[in-house]
Design a protein around this nucleic acid. Structure first.
Lengths: 187, 187
DNA sequence: GCTTCCACTTGACAAAAATCAAGAACATTT
DNA sequence: AAATGTTCTTGATTTTTGTCAAGTGGAAGC
């Protein structure tokens, strides 16, 4: 089983090998150089990708500052959900923080999966529900924790990320300034 | 068309009248008195309800304080998603802030919808995706706005709620103390 | 090897928000 | 109407976090 197949299976729980191979074959390799963009705010978000290697940052420009919404790493899927599912302009800009290898599926091919495999929509539903539950937890951290507590929790769960990406992006993602993160880390 | 049917239709986009009636018939009326609980953290969350009238508060007890995750009003659905979909113990406690009338569907009946109507899973997927996108926006408000800005935005979109529920719960939901909310409102 | 560019750190200060404590306003019950 | 209980407000203070500005350190390019 390829790594992609393993992940499709673990995220979506597709049991049968033939189906898994069929789905995976719709994903095509794609390379992005460090600093280049996977997606720009306002553009069509017509693809979903699996991160084979590399790190991507999901962010958006506001009047005052750039806000990093999320940092995605090897072994996860990436897209702008609103754009991909509802065919709206992308809300987020997505940039590679390292050289990145993706397996990408176009929206039109993605739609074929649901036709070929009727239970796919249910698996998708479960996948998105898990995403919802995860982000619900994240809201909770903002309602109930200080910056320091949010840092401690995130650091515990993502130690290696701190060597791999600029800390300012992690700070933004945690809802604090780079200075505050720096001071918390000094302790 | 009943109000329930209208909402099922507007949330899930079920086009056909017969299907809509069939789905709606699986929901049964349920009353909850002000102050009573719809769900307790740790218990089985085996039902999904549509709020016909009334207001419910989704919260959880932590070591120091009670954190209100969300306040749900007339015309929306309520459940503990993790508990309902994945059959896990409920993460949230849900309490009625006013006398409330619900239309409730049990998990076992809910599962029947997917069998009777194959496209249901896709509609569900789209519904949950919209929930995800909404909560993603909410994360963004915590990453990029001050307490005052979050208040202003929420007030703009939910003016009437401020006369209907204790402000302390709204404060918690917005990630600030009741005192801070009170001071912001004085302006 | 020097320069340039980032990213990060540090300090001083300002602003935002939390905490603690008291009291006022309001609704509910008796 | 009085009593009770809850919610909200206000003031004083502390803590947390942000802002601004300067400086350090390292990596990439020349």
């Amino acid at each position: 089983m390829t790594e992609l197949e393993q992940y499709v299976n673990s995220y979506f729980g597709v049991a049968e090998a033939g189906e898994l191979a069929e789905i995976s074959s719709l994903f095509k390799p794609e390379m992005i150089k460090k600093g280049d963009y996977f997606l720009l705010t306002g553009k069509a978000a017509d693809r979903l990708s699996f991160i084979q290697t590399g790190i991507l940052r999901v962010f958006v420009e506001t009047a005052n500052k750039e806000v990093t919404q999320w940092i995605s790493t090897k072994g996860s899927f990436i897209t702008d959900l609103s754009g991909f599912i509802f065919e709206k302009p992308a809300r987020w800009t997505i940039q590679a923080l390292t050289d990145t290898v993706l397996f990408t599926i176009k929206r039109e091919d993605y739609k074929k999966i649901g036709v070929l495999m009727p239970k796919w929509h249910e698996l998708e539903k479960l996948f998105i529900a898990r995403c919802f539950i995860t982000i619900e937890d994240r809201i909770f951290t903002h309602l109930s924790m200080t910056a320091e507590e949010r840092y401690a929790l995130f650091f515990e769960q993502n130690k290696s990320l701190f060597n791999e990406v600029p800390l300012q992006y992690i700070a933004s993602m945690l809802g604090m300034t780079p200075e505050t993160l720096s001071r918390i880390r000094k302790k």
